[in-house]
Design a protein around this nucleic acid. Structure first.
Length: 925
DNA sequence: TTCTGGACTTAGTACCTAATTT
DNA sequence: AAATTAGGTACTAAGTCCAGAA
């Protein structure tokens, strides 16, 4: 360590020069929690698949070295940087497992291969711990408060340059060095070799999703070569077509189309979608523009002609019926429409938890009072506190309206929809360079209360109604100026062909600009989407050298470089977002570059825990094992700082991106997320797809791979409120099956006591079945049986009545019910005595067969349950839409013969036509 | 340089509809 | 047929990144 120490010191000095600084006063920020609740705790059910672990291992071995998943380990290996001065070492590198992100969930368990080294206590414990961490709510709470506190302490660190740097560094260093340095380094050197070795060892991670996901990428990163070839073919094409088609005059474009398509599949298969299309009747646009077939366009100019109708304004406010009024301190208030509308915004949310939120309340009330001042209630009452306001009558009125709407007849509903469609029709499409393109959002956002997420300081603020005077349109010079659907004049009509927005306005709450763009299915979006993925694929070629570089820089004497390297490592390894600075008037959330002292905690020898609120105030909670140098670095970065200070005080997203850009034009931090997500998906898909499984099994594997990516990216969703309930119900269902199985066993043993010897594996009782459940279950069965007997009786009588025959007497029913009760009692008796008389025709063979079938049903139900649980808080859609190269899905679907529509919804298919056109089954990312 | 804001991508949730279950 | 649940969309908030202003 001695060695080390000096280094650091020096680093510090060096850098002192530039200081970033920043930090705004944290004054009052509090951290949000937001959803915190969910994140909490549940222990994850990893338990189920036992076999899986094993499986993974094997697979790993089979893989060509090159691709081995590096699971986890990546971190370690990389360390290779050579120069390690450090100590010899002792420890083996532990894998980092990292990746998974999921905030709450995962931990990494990576065990490293060799388990052994004296070192840690971990293995098992680890896992546990991790869970604990995640789980507990308290943790979250804690973090929050902490954040708040820290905010208060406005610490600016910048000056540290001099000071902190050297001196502090010293002390730290020494410390760290002693620890860290001694431990590690050595192993790293091997990198590849190491990786390869490791892989096999890996195992372990039993359920750790995280380990899995992260691991997926190859250790070395180098993915594929071959791609060029693949690509080549992708290029195929359907034809020249689009243009031609267009030309076809009336002749039915349909025909033309059909043709094109047929041609395309070399096999000559015709695509069905074609057929479908025709019905749409968009003859005009039917010849879809296949931009991917066209030559690249330089990009500086997005269009030559642009025609559209602007935005559609919502209807004017319609005052409530006379009798519906809010009350203030007991008396009803007659509000002018202007203030009544605002009151209504709040009233409509009465049952949401926004109304319980202090920030939301005060922002709303401030704005409500403002409008009341201008449009006071007729009663002349002054509204002074929110507590005295009673919006219930309004709320109830809205509920009633909803009911009314729901109970309308089909025809009425149809009519309404028809009217709405007619109104919207003119706004659905724009004509871009002569082609019809669908718009995304064409509606002016309606007024309402701003629903900021997390602890957004402005949540609850009134968002104003837009008027034409607020909107700027962007249309072609020769395009006719559209007329707003409400009175007024557009703020401005411009003609800027360098941008893709059609309309724009400034929103009053956050003073941000809102735009109207084309939809995701448009060629503009499609093009940029495709180039995003191409860029990510390009990164494949550079990632090895980038990793090598940042691993080396991890020991740089220049603090700024060391921070940059460390941050990049986290971005690459954990798929963190870049993390731009945010303002006082926004929720306090962070990304990599904006991580603060309190967001990262260290636990020697090499575990790092991240706990912070990221985009949308989603919590990111993850503990990972990192290479020693990373651990050491974080320790240094935290030294001499306190809550509220930036962890990477010499780094900004700008610096990082500029640096990345030198490796590859266009490279920025977010590309790593795209790359890692798609890469992970490809790896997981390879690993999980059961080549000879059923379609359903393949789809399940696909979803599992998708889920791994979602976890990596920390894409969450709130757990449905009734999840616990429905999950419990599923559990009962499983147990009901077990109950049946139990009865089968008893029957078998009753039939022939010797059967027990012959089938010793059937001797054990079903797990998870206590008397309590069984009693409940039997009571349940009884109730159901009685119920259905009654129904049946009524039904029969009804029939008799119709047939004009005599009805059966009630006593019949009563008798039947009595019988049922008796039967049910029998069930209880059977259970207690463990004797079940065999039904007619029962044989040992048949019973065994039934038991086997029951086992299968139980297994299916169980895995289904496990799946549900694993996915309850993971959002798969986001990664599918934004991060996973759609060509991977298309290629996989073709290769394994899974209908694409089972994987992509209609809108996704419309979004990714280029992927369908270009990826054949051999396509690789 | 740093700061600001413009333009565009990424994100979760509210709600609507179709598919199932009861 | 009604009640749930699952799936998909619409909506709009919240990021990223870059360029031009200060």
């Amino acid at each position: 360590m001695a060695v080390v120490a000096p280094d650091l010191t020096s680093d510090l000095n060096v850098q002192a020069a530039h200081v970033p600084v920043t930090v705004d006063s944290p004054a009052g920020k509090t951290n949000g929690t937001s959803t915190g609740a969910n994140g909490t705790g549940h222990a994850h059910t990893n338990g189920n698949g036992n076999g899986s672990v094993k499986k993974e291992e094997e697979e790993d071995e089979e893989m060509p070295l090159a691709r081995k998943p590096a699971q986890t380990k990546r971190a370690v290996n990389s360390g290779s940087s050579s120069e390690e001065d450090e100590r010899p070492l002792a420890k083996k590198p532990r894998g980092s497992g990292g990746g998974g992100a999921g905030g709450r969930r995962r931990i990494v368990d990576s065990e490293s291969e060799e388990e052994d080294v004296p070192v840690k206590k971990e293995k098992k414990p680890l896992a546990k711990k991790a869970n604990g961490t995640n789980g507990d709510t308290s943790a979250s709470t804690k973090s929050k408060s902490a954040a708040a506190a820290k905010a208060a302490a406005a610490k600016k660190r910048r000056e540290d340059e001099e000071e902190s740097d050297s001196p502090s560094s010293e002390s730290d260093l020494s410390e760290s060095s002693s620890e860290a340095s001694s431990e590690d380094e050595k192993p790293l050197a091997k990198k590849k070799g190491a990786a390869a070795k490791k892989a096999p060892a890996k195992k372990a991670a039993a359920g750790s999703a995280s380990a899995k996901s992260s691991g997926s990428r190859s250790a070395t990163g180098t993915p594929r070569k071959g791609m060029a070839a693949a690509k080549a073919n992708g290029g195929v094409k359907k034809e020249e077509g689009s243009s031609e088609e267009d030309e076809v005059p009336l002749a039915k474009s349909a025909k033309g189309k059909g043709k094109g398509k047929a041609v395309d599949g070399k096999g000559g298969k015709v695509k069905k979608e074609k057929v479908k299309k025709e019905e749409d009747g968009d003859e005009a646009e039917d010849g879809k523009y296949q931009w991917w077939e066209d030559a690249e366009n330089d990009g500086s100019t997005k269009w030559k002609t642009l025609v559209h109708n602007g935005v559609l304004f919502p209807p004017a406010y319609i005052p409530l019926p006379k009798g519906v009024k809010m009350r203030y301190d007991g008396t009803s208030l007659t509000l002018p429409p202007e203030s009544e509308e605002v009151a209504g915004f709040w009233a409509a949310m009465l049952e949401t938890d926004h109304v319980q939120d202090a920030t939301f309340q005060s922002n709303f009330f401030r704005d409500f009072q403002t409008i009341l001042k201008k449009y006071p209630p007729r009663e002349g009452i002054k509204v002074e506190t929110l507590e005295k306001c009673d919006f219930r009558p309004m709320f109830e009125h809205f509920e009633k309206e909803k009911e009314k709407k729901k109970s309308m007849t089909k025809d009425e509903k149809k009519q309404i929809k028809a009217d709405r469609d007619a109104l919207e029709a003119p706004y659905l499409y724009a004509i871009v360079d002569g082609r019809k393109e669908k718009l995304g959002n064409f509606r002016a956002e309606p007024p309402g209360l701003f629903r900021g997420r997390g602890e957004h300081p402005r949540k609850g603020t009134l968002k104003f109604r837009l008027r034409p005077e607020d909107i700027t349109l962007n249309i072609g010079t020769d395009a006719p100026a559209p007329k707003p659907n409400i009175p007024g004049k557009w703020k401005l009509i411009k003609h800027d062909p360098t941008v893709t927005w059609l309309a724009e306005w400034k929103e009053n709450v956050n003073n941000s600009t809102k735009y109207v763009f084309l939809s995701a299915a448009s060629s503009w979006k499609g093009q940029s989407d495709r180039s995003k993925f191409e860029k990510a694929r390009q990164l494949i070629k550079h990632v090895d050298s980038i990793r090598k570089t940042y691993n080396a820089d991890m020991k740089s004497k220049v603090m700024a470089d060391r921070q940059r390297a460390t941050a990049l490592y986290f971005i690459d390894e954990l798929a963190l977002r870049a993390g731009n600075e945010k303002g006082e008037d926004e929720a306090d959330t962070v990304g990599c570059c904006s991580l603060r002292y309190e967001h990262v905690t260290l636990e020697p020898p090499n575990r790092v825990t991240f706990d912070f609120l990221g985009k949308d105030s989603m919590r990111f909670l993850n503990t990972v094992e990192v290479q020693p140098q990373v651990f050491k670095n974080v320790k240094i970065f935290k030294a001499d700082k306190e809550k509220g200070d930036q962890l990477f005080d010499r780094l900004t997203t700008g610096i990082l991106n500029k640096y990345l850009n030198d490796f590859m034009p266009g490279l920025s931090a977010k590309v790593f997320r795209t790359y890692n997500a798609s890469w992970t998906f490809q790896q997981q898909l390879r690993k999980l797809t059961p080549a000879d499984g059923s379609v359903a099994e393949k789809i399940a594997a696909y979803n599992d791979a998708n889920r791994d990516v979602a976890i990596l990216c920390n894409h969450q969703k709130t757990v449905a409120k009734n999840f616990a309930e429905s999950f419990a119900k599923m559990g009962d269902k499983v147990r009901a099956l077990k109950y049946q199985r139990m009865k089968l066993r008893f029957q078998l043993f009753t039939l022939d006591p010797k059967a027990k010897k012959r089938n010793p594996e059937l001797a054990d009782d079903e797990s998870d079945m206590d008397d309590d459940f069984m009693e409940r279950h039997e009571a349940d069965l009884l109730e159901k049986a009685l119920e259905s007997a009654k129904k049946k009786f009524e039904r029969e009588n009804l029939k008799l009545e119709e047939a004009k025959e005599d009805k059966k007497p009630k006593t019949d029913l009563e008798e039947r019910l009595k019988e049922i009760k008796k039967e049910m009692k029998e069930l209880t008796k059977e259970r207690k005595s463990k004797k079940v008389e065999s039904r007619k025709g029962a044989t040992e063979e048949k019973l065994l067969d039934q038991i086997t079938k029951m086992d299968a049903r139980i297994a299916v139900a169980k895995t289904q349950m496990g799946d549900r649980d694993k996915t309850k808080d993971v959002a798969l859609g986001t990664s599918k839409i934004n991060y996973i190269d759609p060509r991977l899905t298309v290629a996989w679907a073709k290769k394994f013969d899974v209908p694409l529509e089972k994987l992509f919804s209609k809108t996704l298919r419309e979004k990714f036509p280029w992927a369908e056109a270009e990826a054949d089954e051999d396509w690789v990312f």
